[in-house]
Design a protein around this nucleic acid. Structure first.
Length: 441
DNA sequence: CCAGACGTTGTT
DNA sequence: GTCTGG
DNA sequence: CCAGACGTTGTT
DNA sequence: GTCTGG
């Protein structure tokens, strides 16, 4: 589990997401960071760890390789980042590779979301799991360093996993340890004693997680743009027949036939337009991409939205039946939450190289604000540069982050989200609004 | 004493 | 490095 | 994590 | 199925 994630945060987002406002932050190897919607083990990923040098309360935003390479790895041994990209919390105290890291080598890993493949017989359907309000997830991590034969020091980390929360059991039996508040992140990062570990290395049972199915094309790492997190409609046997009935051309694989919305609400169709637009743009900036028949079929299927809706409309199977139905999937339906993508295909890629070890003093955190949606969702995010020598930035619509927190459409949004104990119509849960992290800086 | 392992997934 | 197995 | 290969002989 | 590569 947790072998893929979305890592498109800007460097400045990490300390804030980890509730480290005001503390000195050193940057290490951040020039290696290449944001991607499809991050896998072997990638360079920024983690936050304590700074042993300098100020005692300082932290380091340190770009490391995902996939632990223990320090005792043989010099000649081939390094394999896929062997230990996860660490079972049940075994970190025993296993030699992890145990030694517990005292002083803990770190925080931050992804906006992660992907999990649900096995349905032969099919494997990936889902994207994220916070409703779009704030990043914080995982418990452990890191190590290894000296290669060339004298190079390789830093790497692993993500601690635990059993799945009750709301995600239907998807998978394991999930990353999600540190949901400042108390837990501070505890993991700073607490030397391993006595309190059991308290924080538990499945995240908060009600503010959400998920939806995404294209199976994310299996290929070459797909690494926003289309990775575009919600798709599940193809059940039923839907297949229906869509076949309405359009035969699908099987004949004709040249690009523009979409044919069999049925779509107003916002749905609008969403589709936006997404089609963005897809084109992405293709343009993408080096290779898998652009072929299959991917096309995925996006040119605005139809099939109808069937799934009945499931949810009827009633939320929440309440008590929830825990029993491990088999059944409280899975997706159409959510309005992901109306993202760039509204303005402006290509304002400016060069900005992140400097090593550069200390920033951007203390304009406004995370105290509780403003909801001010309508301004544009800000800089990092996008892949062809060769990754330097990171380029592109202006685009950032609503994908905050859209999840849209107060409107609450009822529909609630479907694919963590079941709530009580379904009182009033206020949603008590989770703090933190998406202001992403206000343009 | 030395030698060898040291890990996670998931498995129609 | 550190633990287990022989 | 997923995707893709999975082989030999003999070769200008 | 199993191994390699990303």
């Amino acid at each position: 589990m947790c072998g893929r994630g979305r890592g498109t945060l800007r460097p400045d987002d990490f300390p804030r997401a980890c509730h480290l406002n005001g503390r000195p932050v050193r940057h290490l190897n951040m020039d290696r960071y290449q944001p991607s919607y499809n991050v896998a083990p072997g990638f360079n990923v920024p983690v936050v760890r304590r700074d042993e040098e300098g100020d005692s309360d300082g932290v380091v935003l340190h770009c490391m390789k995902w996939g632990l390479i223990p320090s005792f790895t043989k010099k000649n041994e081939k390094i394999d980042h896929f062997r230990m990209f996860n660490a079972r919390c049940e075994s970190i105290r025993e296993k030699a590779s992890f145990r030694r890291l517990l005292p002083k080598n803990r770190c925080l890993v931050s992804f906006e979301g992660f992907y999990e493949w649900k096995k349905d017989g032969l099919r494997k359907q990936p889902y994207y799991i994220h916070f409703k309000d779009g704030r990043p997830l914080i995982f418990a991590g452990l890191f190590d360093s290894w000296r290669s034969s060339e004298g190079e020091i390789l830093y790497s980390f692993t993500i601690v996993t635990t059993t799945s929360s009750s709301s995600l059991e239907w998807l998978h039996d394991r999930m990353p340890v999600v540190l949901g508040n400042k108390e837990s992140t501070d505890s993991w990062l700073n607490d030397a004693p391993l006595s309190n570990l059991d308290k924080i290395l538990k499945p995240y049972e908060g009600t503010d997680l959400a998920w939806y199915p995404v294209t199976t094309a994310i299996g290929k790492l070459s797909l690494n743009g926003p289309e990775c997190i575009k919600e798709i409609q599940i193809k059940t046997e039923e839907t297949k027949s229906i869509s076949q009935f309405f359009s035969k051309k699908d099987i004949c694989a004709k040249p690009p036939i523009k979409k044919e919305p069999v049925e779509a609400t107003e916002q749905e169709s609008m969403k589709n337009e936006l997404e089609n637009q963005s897809t084109l743009e992405n293709k343009r900036m993408k080096a290779e991409s898998v652009q072929n028949g299959q991917q096309k079929s995925v996006k040119e299927e605005p139809e099939s939205q109808l069937t799934l809706d009945n499931t949810t409309v009827t009633a939320e199977p929440v309440q008590n039946s929830q825990q029993k139905s491990v088999k059944e999937e409280p899975q997706s339906q159409s959510t309005v939450q992901n109306r993202r993508m760039e509204g303005e295909p402006e290509e304002n890629s400016q060069q900005k190289s992140m400097k090593e070890e550069h200390d920033e003093s951007q203390d304009d955190y406004r995370q105290t604000t509780t403003k909801k949606d001010d309508g301004d969702n544009t800000c800089d995010i990092y996008t892949l540069s062809p060769e990754g020598a330097t990171s380029s930035i592109e202006k685009r619509d950032y609503s994908e982050f905050s859209a999840h927190a849209k107060p409107s459409t609450r009822e529909t949004e609630r479907r694919h989200t963590t079941p709530v104990k009580k379904k009182s119509k009033g206020a949603d849960d008590k989770q703090p609004t933190l998406f202001s992290y992403f206000g343009r800086s």
